[in-house]
Nucleic acid binder design. Structure first.
Length: 491
RNA sequence: GGCGCAUUCGUCUAGCGGUUAGGACACCUCCCUCUCAAGGAGGAGAUCGCGGGUUCAAAUCCCGCAUGCGCUACCA
């Protein structure tokens, strides 16, 4: 029987959840769900200096938003806890002690200053920087002396001087590293916390992780991990390194490329469905044509073999397009509910809150297919709410028209409109189309003038539907105001 | 500098010895049309990083080179 699939997402709580990290989590999650395995969340809070308050909540928030639920983790527990590395310090200490006792690791008393200096010299001499193994073979009395001097040592791994470590990555294939290129890295820091390398190995083993799916930035660390597994006598997991998401300059995507937190995307009006689908498609593909996939389709079809090998630029244009597709696919009620918070937030402050939900419901169908991001919604419906429209009066004058002809057209419209018995899309169309002809105008000319008069915009949803939602009173008042503007313009 | 990995339209990608190198976003044109969208139909855009091989045949296999990225911390 093959070992059960157990994968993990192991973020470091140093800030808001980066889309790259979330994509790593997603690949792990997809792997678990596809194989019927377990997805565990483990918090790697071993760097006290970079720890950010609230970061764990941000990370969980981001994961939950995308529906990446975990079977084991800090909040839900599990048989392999605790899931905060800061609560597993004994385990790392024991492992480090054992390695020292076995002769696979040693105490190092070198000061940070010495290490910096050493590296500076190495670089100056064009030597590869790396620990010079100063403390690797310290005599017992030398050690005692350092200890007596109050120096708290770190524990370093004793990397074999010769030989090589090979591994087969499920994406990149066979990778080989010469031991001579690996220096004696730190396992346990002087503050008693482990480094990533030690903690990662100890925990992945203890938690029976079957596949380590992580970013490509970790491939050069993998031989170190393998060396630790070997020294500890553990069987290593399968390694799966995936390519990174990069910025337009092809460098690893980071803060300096702008908003990279998954939470920012939510704030900017992207749907979780979009992000899920889009992120899955960066570096992974099903075939030569399928791009729009539901969460379930992604689970069903996911496979490690179809993850590519090259870093991908995050294509905002395509993200926006996809978000539009998902927005259009929403039921009108769903769309309304999702857009509502953005309207409450984004409409001009004089607009009374809470918003009149029935009124909102009537305009939402008009903007759904025009919305790419939920943040655009307020701008698209603003004219339904504001009292005074503020626009350039010359926008009222359509092509081949004058202030005078526009005035006449609007005036005629106003009179007819006030006498219209039913004020809906149909009746408006049957009234206004013939009117245009009667006035000797093209439909576009009359409608254009009315559009601007009634909305203050030149691009809006279809005129009759828009007017129907606005209602007769508002329309007539706005046409009056437009007439006023025109008169001021010509005088 | 060292080590590792990568390299197909502007971008994301399909391709796994024989294809007119396919699709998507963006772009352009046309249609629809009261504007804007959406939708439909087209178009342009890739000598598959470069140079050598192997082979009847290479984007696909091999070797060099170039370029890019990653790592090179008591950070992850």
């Amino acid at each position: 029987m093959p070992t059960p699939v157990r994968v993990r997402f192991a973020p470091s709580p140093t800030g808001r959840p980066h889309v790259g990290g979330i994509r790593t989590a997603m690949f792990n999650w997809l792997m678990a769900r596809h194989a019927g395995g377990k997805f565990v969340l483990r918090i790697e809070d071993t760097d006290v200096t970079r720890k950010v308050e609230g970061a764990v909540e941000y990370i969980m928030d981001g994961l939950k938003w995308l529906g990446l639920d975990w079977d084991e983790g800090p909040d839900v527990g599990g048989d392999y806890g605790p899931y905060y590395q800061s609560q597993r310090l004994d385990l790392y200490r024991q492992a480090a002690d054992r390695l020292v006792k076995q002769g696979d690791a040693y105490y190092c008393y070198c000061s940070p200053e010495r290490l910096v200096e050493m590296r500076k010299e190495q670089v100056a001499r064009k030597q590869p920087p790396g620990y010079d193994r100063h403390c690797r073979d310290l005599a017992p009395q030398e050690r005692a002396q350092k200890e007596a001097g109050g120096i708290v040592p770190v524990v370093r791994f004793k990397v074999p001087l010769e030989g090589q470590t090979k591994f087969t990555d499920l994406i990149y294939g066979d990778v080989t590293f010469e031991h001579s290129t690996i220096d004696d890295f730190v396992l346990l820091k002087s503050d008693g916390y482990p480094t990533y390398h030690l903690a990662n190995v100890v925990d992945d083993h203890a938690m029976e992780i079957s596949h380590v799916i992580r970013g490509e930035e970790w491939v050069s660390s993998t031989p170190r991990h393998l060396l630790i597994y070997g020294a500890l006598g553990y069987d290593p997991p399968q390694y799966v390194h995936h390519p990174l998401i990069v910025g337009p300059d092809r460098a690893k995507l980071s803060k300096r490329h702008g908003d990279v937190s998954i939470l920012e995307f939510r704030k900017h009006g992207y749907l979780p469905e979009t992000m899920f689908n889009f992120l899955a498609l960066i570096g992974w593909s099903l075939d030569d044509k399928t791009e729009l996939m539901t969460r379930q389709e992604l689970i069903d079809n996911f496979s490690l073999e179809r993850i590519g090998k090259t870093g991908a630029i995050f294509n905002r244009d395509k993200l926006d397009w996809m978000n539009g597709v998902y927005i259009r696919s929403l039921s009108i009620e769903d769309f309304t509910q999702r857009a509502l918070p953005f309207l409450e937030q984004g409409l001009p402050s004089p607009v009374k809150r809470p918003l009149d939900i029935d009124y909102v419901r009537r305009m939402m169908p008009l903007i759904q297919e025009r919305t790419k991001k939920l943040t655009e919604a307020p701008g698209l419906v603003k004219f339904f709410f504001v009292d005074k429209l503020d626009y350039d009066p010359t926008l009222l004058i359509a092509r081949n028209m004058t202030p005078e002809s526009t005035l006449a057209a609007l005036d005629a419209s106003s009179q007819r409109l006030s006498k219209l018995s039913i004020f809906n899309e149909e009746s408006l169309e049957t009234l206004l189309r013939p009117l245009a002809e009667e006035l000797g105008l093209k439909a576009g000319q009359l409608f254009g003038a009315l559009r601007t008069a009634v909305t203050g915009e030149t691009a809006t949803p279809p005129l009759f539907q828009t007017m129907a939602v606005l209602g007769r009173e508002r329309c007539l008042r706005r046409i009056d105001e437009a007439l006023e503007k025109l008169r001021r313009l010509s005088s």
